[in-house]
Design a protein around this nucleic acid. Structure first.
Lengths: 157, 157
DNA sequence: ATAATTTCGTTGACCTGTCAACAAATATGT
DNA sequence: ACATATTTGTTGACAGGTCAACGAAATTAT
């Protein structure tokens, strides 16, 4: 059911789709589902596992806590996912000279190969998603999203 | 940790935040957490319960399947949530003259009161979130989000 | 120095969202 | 008309994310 259909038969003056938060949440859920389906055809990785792999790739050397902050993931989630990624042979741990509690995370050769393999399709998907959006509008979109995300950190009370 | 900090110490050429899907997902997660915290101070409703209440308010009279399509929620989720909302006294069921399987859902007086109570804060939140976004940019944001959401329905393969 | 606080990663418990099976009702096709 | 297929809502099972407690290590304060 499209928004147009729904908006046409609305009986109330207030339309839920006016709530930008609802729109973002719904779009995000759809995108995540699409991403999971795509991943299922490419790899054994789940979505969060893929994201963690991508963050480690991005940072080269990092620790779990930084991954958690950047991707806004639960640290317990990361702990388990990293273990899985180690078992899969995509991630390796080394000592963190600065902190005895943490381990330095990095990609193995197989991890880099897996990243390179998956990221190709993800880049294509990215292009497909915004193919009828102008570069200028996309830049505006990014900027607005950044502002909204910043405000999402604030308390309402 | 801000994006600037993270971007400054990136060792790879590829930045995860270039992936608009990742950005949307992260922002959405933050927004949902903020919404849940806000709700916790106002009502006993959870986020999906609140959304279902809002959809029923919007449509006045509706059936579960329509709510499911509009809010993109699982029908099982709706079945259970509606039962809870009935127990709370916010939603009532009537017969659907057109379909013997469905029940017409509508808000009780208490349901309308609850909606009116919660929606005030949600409108304030909405304004707060976009307070430093121009009306024009917000319109662009909505349009781009709509396009992306439409593409999210397509298959990658 | 050392005591108190914070941070890190692990783990167990819980909660929510997701998927599949099902019966009943409706819609479709021949 | 009748058989087949689809849709509706309920339910049980499962996967995933979330939260709290914990020991170990690091940081901060006194």
């Amino acid at each position: 059911m499209s928004d147009q259909e729904l908006e046409s038969n609305q009986s109330s003056l207030e339309d839920l789709s006016n709530f930008i938060t609802f729109r973002i949440s719904r779009a995000s859920a759809s995108l995540n589902k699409q991403a999971m389906k795509t991943l299922a055809h490419l790899t054994d990785l789940g979505l969060t596992q893929w994201r963690i792999l991508a963050v480690i790739h991005m940072e080269g050397q990092t620790v779990a806590a930084k991954v958690a902050r950047y991707a806004d993931l639960d640290k317990g989630q990361i702990s388990r996912a990293v273990n899985t990624l180690k078992d899969m042979g995509f991630v390796q741990e080394g000592d963190d000279p600065n902190d005895g509690r943490s381990a330095m995370l990095s990609l193995t050769e197989a991890g880099h190969a897996e990243y390179d393999h998956v990221v190709q399709t993800m880049r294509k998907r990215q292009k497909m998603l915004v193919q009828d959006v102008t570069a200028e509008d996309l830049e505006t979109f990014r900027a607005v999203l950044k502002k909204i995300e910043a405000r999402a950190q604030e308390s309402i009370l």
